[in-house]
Nucleic acid binder design. Structure first.
Lengths: 248, 248
DNA sequence: GCGCTACTTTGATTTGCATCAATGCCGTCG
DNA sequence: CGACGGCATTGATGCAAATCAAAGTAGCGC
């Protein structure tokens, strides 16, 4: 499959990601998904005033696990992998951040994971100290961040079940169903295509498998006519099969 | 090893768990560890007024994943396993709750996991709606709960690395080091003994292994003189070995 | 004390996935 | 164009942990 740059920006009305005169948060296409949805117009304007705009190109690193977290981010477009690495090079991807996701929920100075741009990425950037002060003043924003955190926690528990107890086939099926759900939410409507902007190695590191196993299982599914591999992702043929085998 | 009931209650000054006249939160031995440490004297008194006292005996179920979460809990003594189950009986234990831990961080009506008492358990119980209203009024309590949630999230990420990328030996070593750290924190001082009130099956379900593998690895470590198995837990002989092999 | 029950340990064997090793497939750039 | 570099795929083999199968141990009630 081809992953090299073939991922086109799905947000054309995005504004949060463009803090240039004329653009503003009111037209941000992912606001409904983001922490910002907790804010009223005045608060949004205030927050917009302290927002910066970040662009990261494919394969670049937003931050490393050992870095101090000076900024927090609201992803507006693109995909980011969140990585925990072991000293000997083993990696576990703990999640993929999609548009609407927030990086920096933890109120700590240090990141606990690395963030690497899988595609070109745009994000609203806030100075951590400023954002923290603001959320300290706005209980409903703090509450919204807490909701985000507990939602993440629930996803993390799903992920633990997947890593600890599913077979390779179940892991792949669950991953594909999850990606389908997440893209549908981001894009606001269902696409036949399930976008897989990340490479096979990233999928393997997310699922606790090797790249060879990921490749074998997906290609076997194609041979069994459960799905077709297409540029930039896959397409379900036998959706019922996936509903059956995906867990969580 | 014997796990049947051999776990003695470590908190003798506990008060949060005993809302009878004369006892109160001021003497709660795990308050420093709990969400309550965010509260001042007045708030503590108010919260105490709305607290109930729960006792669960060994092997009993606090709640199931499908249950509505009517109450939230502050564990004051004992150990609870947090379980996600699959339809076919496979289980993943996502964590063990120890004294000071809070159950009910999520602001949702439904639990996403079951909680089962590994030992006899005592907990402060609060009506969810009342507790939520209170935390809505008290930004520093909300903030404290958010800190708890993001800390849990970080632990969950450690757990994902363990499940996805560690060998059986590394999983066991990491688990034992984690339990040592957690008990030391709860008890306020280091014990030679690392308490393992949970059975081998629970350890296996926490680590994504089978009971046979857990038993084999621990017994091999004993044969290799890395540790000794004692009633209610284990004792490190070669602490350096564990520092070496434990990850996260 | 004896037998029951629940849990743990140990051994033999199997197996799912990893590892090792090519080969294939593009896209890119000299 | 043709060679190169970076994935992805495919095949052969190995091995860590699962599974299958007993046997051991300890607490408990009678």
């Amino acid at each position: 499959m081809d992953n090299s740059g073939g991922f086109t920006e799905p947000h054309r009305h995005g504004a949060c990601g463009h803090h240039v005169p004329g653009d503003d948060c009111r037209f941000c296409s992912i606001r409904r998904l983001s922490v910002c949805s907790a804010l009223d117009q005045d608060e949004l304007s205030f927050l917009e005033g302290m927002a910066g705009d970040s662009v990261f190109e494919e394969k670049s690193t937003l931050f490393r696990e050992e870095d101090e977290s000076i900024s927090v981010y609201n992803v507006t477009s693109g995909v980011i992998r969140l990585v925990r690495s072991l000293p000997d090079g083993r990696r576990q991807i703990t999640g993929f951040a999609l548009p609407g996701d927030f990086l920096g929920l933890a109120l700590q100075k240090q990141w606990k994971f690395s963030a690497e741009a899988v595609t070109d990425v745009k994000a609203c950037r806030f100075k951590r100290s400023t954002f923290d002060d603001f959320s300290e003043q706005k209980p409903h924003l703090m509450k919204r961040m807490h909701e985000f955190a507990t939602h993440e926690l629930s996803l993390a528990q799903d992920h633990m079940v997947l890593l600890g107890r599913l077979t390779a086939e179940e892991k792949i099926a669950s991953f594909l169903v999850l990606m389908k759900r997440r893209w549908t939410r981001v894009e606001g409507h269902e696409l036949g295509l399930i976008r897989l902007p990340m490479g096979r190695q990233d999928i393997a590191d997310y699922l606790g498998l090797t790249i060879e196993t990921v490749s074998r299982v997906i290609n076997q599914m194609q041979r069994d006519r459960k799905l077709v591999i297409v540029p930039d992702g896959i397409r379900f043929i036998d959706a019922a099969y996936f509903e059956q085998h995906a867990i969580a």
